[in-house]
Amino acid sequence: MILQALAFYLFATVLLASGVVVVTSRNPVYSVLFLILAFFNAAGLFVLLGAEFIAMILVIVYVGAVAVLFLFVVMMLDVDFAELKKGVQSYLLPGLGIGGLLFAELIIAVAAHWHFAPHAAPAAATPKGITNTQALGHILYTDYVYYFQAAGLVLLVAMIGAIVLTLRHRDGVRRQKAWTQISREPSDAMALVDVKPGEGVE
């Protein structure tokens, strides 16, 4: 038990610290690298909770795909982050003030009155005898099929939207035209000329 608590505080501390560095770091590449560290620690917290499937998904999807994509964007786009962060100083005090106020309210209102609802505790427990992945598989396409399909439609809209807003058909781009390319005959592209010595091609 003490080991678990120790692991929790270790993961949580590193997670929060790297979160702060993500926001404050001057170099955006460092920000992304610390974001990856934050993801790993969050995954560690999930493992402690017994949610190993979500932990692995976090590592595979967020570290493997999203963070790497961020890294590409940061390196390829010429964004002057120092310029973007210029206003931070002037907004720092009011921002901290509002944040502190919200935090205090949360402590007073939520932490002081926190109690688990009678229904909530059993719902959160990990199922006995089967793995997380299996348990999710049992409900994802049955009880939760409506949510699953709706989430799929949200992604479809995102894809259509990205294409609508960014795709431009430029002139002068040579595209693949499979049928024309395959059905090309030698006679369309070549002419055999019998060149007489000393006269050249007309």
Binding site: Y146, V157, G161, V164
Partner: peptide, 23 residues
């Protein structure tokens, strides 16, 4: 609340794109 949120996001995401349609 889950169904509410998914419906709302489906609607909102499409509306954001529609607002910026004359890009």
């Amino acid at each position: 609340f889950l169904a509410l949120y998914l419906g709302l996001e489906l609607q909102s995401l499409a509306l954001y794109v529609l607002a910026a349609f004359q890009r």
